[in-house]
Write a protein that binds this DNA or RNA. Structure first.
Length: 271
DNA sequence: ATGGGCACCTGGCTGC
DNA sequence: TGCAGCCAGGTGCCCA
């Protein structure tokens, strides 16, 4: 479900309600997530103030006074802000109850999401340590992509979805960024020119910024913490548009499968 | 080192 | 209607 813009939308929606508040308690109704939620986690986190709420790739990091919570939304996870006494519905797995009477409720039908505790610097956690630089940071540019793609035969779309090389770009925005940069998703990464990588890095930043501004992309079940959908779907050029005419050249958008996942591109605009 | 395929889950949609 | 089959926004891990 969520790519970087959707996670960032969640972070911005939640931040005003959680920053500086005390985390009263955590209620785990279903610990069987991607990794089992530690039975000790509620006690480790309870009673502490929430000092910061950060995002690293698609992880949300709740920094408490003595340790951090790492939350990943997986494919189908959402966070909602609710009065704590609202009755839970199906797949409401975790409540983070605040001293304001509000609670942050994590719902995740597929349970690919995760909630972890770390007492160390979260950026050194096993799952975060190896992640590529943030795509919206300055160090992420055409020179960076050229460097990491050097000698690689893997298709550029798959490279964009390798979290050791690029983070935050999932299946929707990989297709969208490649369209904007005019690059075919099947092109071997190592054979793309520096100039094309300049265009691709710029396209990634642009599409992520625009999607964040629109509150993310809602295909089916993404809603922000207030329960509102994202409005970026109408701005998609290729994703989910197989067979429909390209918005630029009118040729039909093609849908192919790479690594078992759908890829969309325009045969007229991308080379 | 690199790359490919599988695994983890539920639900919604399509077509018989 | 019912149901089988396929697809879905992620990513860690095992194997060649």
């Amino acid at each position: 479900m969520p790519e970087l813009p959707e996670v960032e939308t969640a972070r911005r929606g939640i931040a005003p309600s959680v920053l500086g508040r005390r985390l009263e308690r955590i209620l785990v109704r279903e610990p069987r997530l991607r990794w089992p939620v530690s039975a000790a986690l509620p006690q480790l986190a309870a009673g502490q103030q929430i000092c910061d709420l950060r995002r690293r790739a698609k992880y949300l990091i709740f920094d408490l006074e003595r340790g951090s919570l790492l939350l990943h939304l997986g494919m189908s996870g959402t966070l909602r802000l609710l009065p704590h006494d609202i009755a839970p519905v199906a797949h409401d797995h975790v409540d983070i109850v605040l001293d304001s009477g509000l609670c942050l409720r994590f719902n995740d039908p597929r349970r690919f999401g995760s909630l972890l505790w770390t007492a160390e610097d979260p950026l050194t956690h096993t799952l975060l340590r190896q992640l590529a630089p943030e795509p919206l940071d300055e160090v992420f540019d055409g020179a960076y992509l050229t460097r990491v793609a050097k000698g690689r035969r893997v298709a550029i779309k798959q490279l964009l979805m390798n979290s050791r090389l690029v983070v935050g770009v999932g299946n929707i925005y990989a297709s969208e960024a490649l369209f904007r940069a005019g690059i075919r998703p099947l092109r071997a990464a190592g054979r793309i020119t520096h100039a094309q990588f300049d265009a691709l890095a710029a396209a990634i930043k642009e599409v992520l910024h625009e999607a964040i501004r629109a509150g993310g992309t809602t295909l089916r079940d993404f809603f922000d913490p207030e329960g509102l959908p994202g409005y970026f779907k109408q701005a998609l050029y290729v994703y989910g548009r197989g067979g429909e005419p390209c918005r630029i050249c009118k040729k039909p958008i093609r849908q192919i499968v790479q690594s078992g996942r759908s890829t969309y591109f325009c045969p007229g605009c991308q080379h």
